[in-house]
Simulated scan of single mutants.
Amino acid sequence: MKCLNKPWSISVCREVALADLARQQRLRLIWSRKWFRDAIEASTDPSLLNYRLIAQWLGATIPDSRALILALNNSLCFGLYRNGRQIGFARVVTDMAETWVIRNLFISPEYRFVGLGSWLLHCCLSHPGTRGCRHIVAMGEPVPDFFERNGFIACPSLPGIWVTASHDGINDPICARSASSH
């Protein structure tokens, strides 16, 4: 787009430039990332995801396969792998500006209770996309106290919802009121 030096076009050019910068930043943020812990790897590379396995794990949550594929393709997905075999999964729905929602965190039953769920959650929280996000929310049906042990606060008024106690120094007002009532 060519900018003209007229007063009305300056703001349009600035908006186009800001939109272009936002697109570039989004591409940098969704670029594949990896974390390692001994023989375990966490990755955001979508080509590594085992869609059949994820469909088995999330079948009760998202029973429609078309809806599941749409959800996975439009989310930032974290896979957990051991020797190339997928053993865990977490999905993040985000605008990469203010809100980061962690959904569908799942660890294969034979790998539970050794800290891999907490580590995968930490990988989700340490992703560069969380920088600047004011609201980090976790949604799901985890084992009792899982999110609380990992720094989240339950929202009694919203079952299945947990928020970070504080992120960037800002408390979530809805759940702050709920947390103070019990």
Rank of each mutant, 00 (worst) to 15 (best):
V93W: 13
R103H: 09
L76R: 08
D45T: 10
V163K: 07
T94H: 04
M139K: 11
I69E: 13
R37W: 00
C155A: 06
E148Q: 08
M139Y: 06
D64M: 03
H135P: 01
I170D: 02
C155I: 04
A176Y: 02
I174Y: 14
H122L: 13
I10S: 12
K34N: 10
I10F: 09
L21C: 09
R112P: 00
Q24W: 00
A19T: 10
P144M: 04
L18Y: 04
A179P: 12
N74F: 11
R14G: 08
I87C: 06
K2N: 10
N5R: 15
G88T: 01
N74W: 12
E41Q: 06
W119R: 04
S166Y: 09
R26G: 05
K34A: 12
E148S: 05
V137S: 02
N150C: 06
R91I: 00
S11P: 09
Y111W: 13
R82L: 07
G117D: 05
D38H: 15
L158C: 11
S43P: 06
I107V: 12
W162A: 07
P7K: 08
R112A: 02
W31H: 15
F146I: 05
A17S: 12
I54Y: 00
G169K: 11
R33L: 15
A39C: 09
P159D: 09
P156M: 06
L4V: 08
G79N: 05
M96V: 12
I10K: 15
G84P: 05
S9W: 01
W100R: 03
R23V: 09
L4H: 07
L58Y: 06
